[in-house]
Write a protein that binds this DNA or RNA. Structure first.
Lengths: 242, 242
DNA sequence: CACGATTATATGTCTAGACATATAAGTCAA
DNA sequence: TTGACTTATATGTCTAGACATATAATCGTG
């Protein structure tokens, strides 16, 4: 989780304690390595029980803002070496959040027995049925991204009969497969002929690529490749904490 | 924060409770929208006090796995629309973690009064001194990324006299400026002549671009652009939770 | 001085209560 | 039927204790 920045106006005591300490860390008043007051000192300062300050400090520790060491105390952590939280939003949500009209177009949808390439891509050994989908997302009728997806039907049988002509498969999957794990890989390529045509850009123009591989309880569900025009689209990642 | 996946083997009770519930959610046994047992039911099941189950549930709520509603109960959340956590590691750490030899080379370093373009890039109004740095990171003597950085000296005066000929400015800043906030923007471009030469790739080859803008307490510190050869380098983001 | 044993202490977890508060659900009147 | 009021209840916060446990610091000893 991430801490709310403005927990200070919360009326509860532990949130105030947490916000007070967070502020001193973020302003640099308590630099990395600084030992923050012991629990019993904070108990005295705020006139509350130890469980209350413990809750505040535990949350700061969960947020990696401080490190707690038995017998030694609690210390401000060194920033985590430029790590960041990137929100890769659902494409439809992303476009509508920008206040633009979302458009969706199914390019093709094929049900087939998994080829060797399909099995490789999904990371499965046994040959089963898969659905291969290509589609295009657009914002205000301008091509926004092209999607190339493979769904493992042995994991998601319902996908065989799902209608992807109106709703994008990503949204459908979100509502039919709960709580997945995934790995994203981000890279850059230049547009080939087919990509250039679908995205309405020049051949050789840069494209941002997101490969997402999704599974649940060690079971593969779907593999998807998203291509964005690289000079117009941008992924934004905002973060707090070094 | 994110929950440790293997909290089950922890000997403490609240971690066991948390892990039990987490497991049922992740396997799909308790799908999104499912109401998990009330606190008093879990108290009965585990034979402990309410504070103990409350701690377990609070952490699950902090991790966005469940949603807690007064009077109604606690409910499994719908996955957060394909958001992901991306770790953009410190380049030196990233390369050494790959077991490759880290190399660094300063291309140029200039101290100057901020130009209009510099002020625009740093998002500051007043003209002050800045340090402009270009450098190259390599792995096993192969160019890995080229860095183009601007540091605001009114925020980080020490940077004026820092020696960037041996250590990269990113590492230096990590140790001299605690607890920053930042925004990353990821995009794709094709290599121009100069970039191609520095990265030893072909002109027109795809490059991944990370623009990072860093500040502390509303004060600009540094703006940096990193260029990676797009077909060889990849950013990997792993996440749990839909 | 080096190294092992002891001790002190800050955090980690837990209890059995308490009152506060938001709100779902039920009740009643227009 | 609808809207306003009341009530029941699950969570939110907090207390004043307790014992467990890891470990920094101290003390002794060879």
């Amino acid at each position: 989780m991430s801490l709310a920045t403005d927990a200070a106006d919360q009326p509860t005591l532990y949130k105030r304690i947490r916000a007070d300490i967070e502020k001193r860390i973020l302003t640099g008043e308590w630099p990395p390595g600084h030992r923050i007051p012991f629990e019993h000192e904070l108990v005295a300062r705020y006139g509350c029980s130890r469980m209350t300050v413990n809750k505040a400090l535990s949350e700061l520790a969960q947020a990696d803002l401080i490190e707690r060491r038995r017998r030694a105390g609690s210390f401000v952590r060194r920033p985590q070496h430029q790590s960041a939280v990137l929100k890769i939003a659902d494409i439809r949500a992303e476009i509508t959040a920008l206040g633009r009209a979302y458009g969706y177009e199914l390019i093709h949808r094929k049900l087939r027995t998994a080829t060797a390439a399909d099995r490789e891509r999904l990371g499965v050994k046994k040959a089963g049925k898969v659905v291969a989908i290509a589609c295009r997302h657009s914002a205000d009728d301008v091509p926004f991204a092209v999607e190339d997806r493979l769904i493992d039907l042995s994991s998601v049988p319902d996908a065989a009969t799902a209608d992807f002509s109106r709703d994008p498969p990503g949204s459908w999957l979100l509502h039919h497969v709960p709580w997945t794990e995934a790995e994203h890989t981000i890279s850059a390529i230049v547009a080939d002929n087919r990509t250039a045509e679908v995205l309405d850009i020049a051949v050789g123009a840069p494209c941002l690529v997101i490969d997402r591989y999704t599974w649940r309880s060690a079971r593969t569900i779907t593999a998807v490749r998203l291509l964005y025009p690289g000079d117009s689209h941008r992924l934004v990642a905002r973060f707090k904490g070094g």
